[in-house]
């Protein structure tokens, strides 16, 4: 018994004095969105691979609320020791202009930006239009009648619609839903007519023929959607905004020591190369990015510029991007 206690004590003193290399205890991963959402699914599927590289458990916790702001605030209130990771989606890049906070991912250190989604326009099967040209013509001919699902100001739908409105003025009715899942269900039930959504959320329904794609919001065609022309064929003016899409990333607080950041970046980069993860993401229509450092910062700034200015020009920003020195795209 005595030996055991001494053993434990020496182990304790050793580990505190020698300061074993990071990580020496479990890491906490804070997921910005609720269980079952796409961010949750992506983070839960990459973490086990990263755990292998790090040698400790990543304890995942969903901390929802305030469009992700609560999780962000929480991570930044913790020590900058790399033991608390923020696992989130694109939303914080809009916090500043939407008045939801004065921080975004540019104020944190990026561990990895895993993947990016591609937005598409989907419509009810019985809709009398099949591509963007026919769709916009139809809206013009029936002002105010068409019901388009939305996920609130700053959500994907609002930004994609703002892009479209920058090219052509449309008069439609916007029906708000809290998330693309419920909105796409409503589309199948006939409560709304058209919905801009991320490809991954719609791909299975499209394959099964329960809804149809009428537009691909990208510069190039997508191999998951053969025969669908990119939106820039109809509206070449959109080229400056694209490619654009929601993303998933992992971040730590500013001030985390360099060697810790390197270790985490290495682990997640390795994890994102795992064939299971790549397969999962591609099947859901996501483009793997697996970037960090300079490349990631460039991506984040680009996303922020495009979205912030679109939102600002569409008239639903609370504060101007200029206030935060966000350059025009």
């Amino acid at each position: 018994m005595k030996k055991t206690i001494i053993g434990a004590l020496t182990a304790l003193t050793l580990s505190t004095t020698a300061l074993a290399a990071f990580p020496e205890k479990d890491i906490q991963g804070i997921i910005q969105w609720g269980a079952g959402g796409s961010t949750d699914t992506v983070m839960r599927s990459i973490s086990p691979h990263a755990e292998k590289a790090l040698g400790v458990d990543i304890v995942l916790t969903n901390k929802t609320g305030g469009v992700g702001a609560i999780a962000m605030k929480y991570v930044n209130s913790k020590d900058d020791d790399g033991y608390t990771l923020l696992m989130g989606a694109e939303n914080p890049q809009m916090y500043k202009v939407l008045g939801l906070g004065d921080m975004d991912y540019n104020d944190m250190i990026t561990i990895n930006i895993l993947a990016r989604g591609t937005p598409v326009f989907v419509a009810r099967n019985d809709a009398p239009y099949n591509n963007m040209q026919e769709f916009t013509d139809f809206v013009k001919a029936h002002p105010g009648e068409l019901k388009i699902g939305s996920t609130g100001n700053g959500g994907l739908t609002s930004i994609v619609m703002a892009m479209l409105q920058s090219q052509i003025s449309l008069d439609y009715t916007s029906i708000p839903y809290n998330g693309d899942g419920p909105a796409l269900t409503a589309l199948q039930g006939g409560a709304i007519d058209v919905m801009p959504a991320v490809l991954g959320a719609t791909i299975e329904q499209i394959k099964a023929g329960r809804m149809k794609v009428i537009g691909l919001v990208d510069k190039e065609a997508n191999k998951l959607l053969p025969g669908v022309a990119p939106i820039t064929d109809t509206f070449p003016g959109l080229k400056s905004y694209l490619p654009w899409g929601p993303f998933f990333g992992i971040f730590v607080k500013q001030g985390t020591p360099d060697d810790v950041v390197k270790k985490l970046q290495g682990a997640f980069q390795q994890a994102a190369f795992h064939p299971d993860f790549i397969d999962l993401m591609q099947k859901r229509g996501f483009t793997i990015l697996n970037i960090s450092g300079e490349e990631a910062n460039y991506f984040l700034s680009g996303y922020r510029s495009t979205s912030s200015w679109l939102v600002h020009e569409a008239g639903f920003s609370k504060r101007s991007p200029e206030e935060f020195n966000i350059p025009r795209p």
Binding site: G34, A35, G36, G37, D40, T41, R44, S45, G181, T185, Q188, I203, E204, Q205, K207, A208, G209, R210, D276, D279, L280, K283, R284
Partner: peptide, 30 residues
């Protein structure tokens, strides 16, 4: 709705859909 259409009937089945994805299945109408 989860097994026939890939639409979760409640919060738990939403997590099940995620689980099926992670295990390489494609929950959806097909």
């Amino acid at each position: 709705p989860m097994l026939t259409l890939g639409i979760p009937g409640d919060a738990v089945t939403a997590v099940f859909i995620g689980a099926l994805f992670i295990h390489g299945l494609n929950p959806g109408p097909l």
